Computed example of a mutant assay.
Amino acid sequence: MLKDPPITVNVFDEARVNHEMTVELAFVNPVSEILRDCSLTPSGTGLLQWEELTKLPDLMPNNRVCVKLIIVPHKSGERTLLVGFDRASFKDIKTSCIVNVKP
């Protein structure tokens, strides 16, 4: 069981409906083994039309991988961007951030 999710989410641009914004997802391998066959899955109502599965490269212990995504919000208001990490040996590793989308 991991105490702190090893996932961070950074939003770099102002969020506006129908305008591109950059989001960076980062994951740090918290265990002493190479992680293989992993993925990050961002989702969010009003932010993404569908979940976007992003396969990650093999990750050495304590190494970090960053993925930049361009998303185009399609609804205004306070939205939650949820990011899940998937691998057979880890269950339910998720983090989220609030994105305030302007009209």
Rank of each mutant, 00 (worst) to 15 (best):
N100C: 07
R16N: 10
E14M: 04
W50M: 06
M60L: 13
L82F: 10
T80Y: 01
T8G: 02
K68H: 09
V67W: 04
P61G: 07
L81E: 00
I34D: 05
H74S: 12
V17I: 14
K75F: 03
R16S: 09
S32T: 09
F85L: 08
I7V: 13
E51I: 04
S76H: 06
V17F: 09
V67L: 12
L56Y: 06
H19Y: 12
G77F: 02
L59E: 02
N18W: 05
V28Y: 00
S32V: 04
G77Q: 08
V28S: 07
M1E: 12
G44C: 08
P103K: 11
P30L: 03
S32Q: 13
V9G: 04
P6Y: 06
G77E: 03
G46W: 04
D13T: 06
N29A: 05
D58Y: 03
G84Q: 15
S43T: 14
T41S: 14
R36H: 09
N10M: 07
P5Y: 03
D37W: 08
E20D: 15
S39N: 10
E78V: 09
V17E: 11
I98T: 14
V23E: 03
L69K: 15
L35G: 00
S89D: 11
V67F: 08
L2S: 13
V31W: 09
T41K: 08
W50E: 14
N63Q: 14
V31G: 07
G84P: 01
P61M: 07
K55C: 07
V83H: 00
S32Y: 10
S39W: 01
C97W: 06
T80E: 12
D4G: 02
G77P: 02
V101W: 00
S43M: 11
P6C: 08
M60Q: 15
V31S: 11
S89Y: 00
P57E: 05
E14Y: 05
E24H: 03
V28H: 04
R36I: 09
T54E: 09
N29F: 02
V83R: 00
V31F: 12
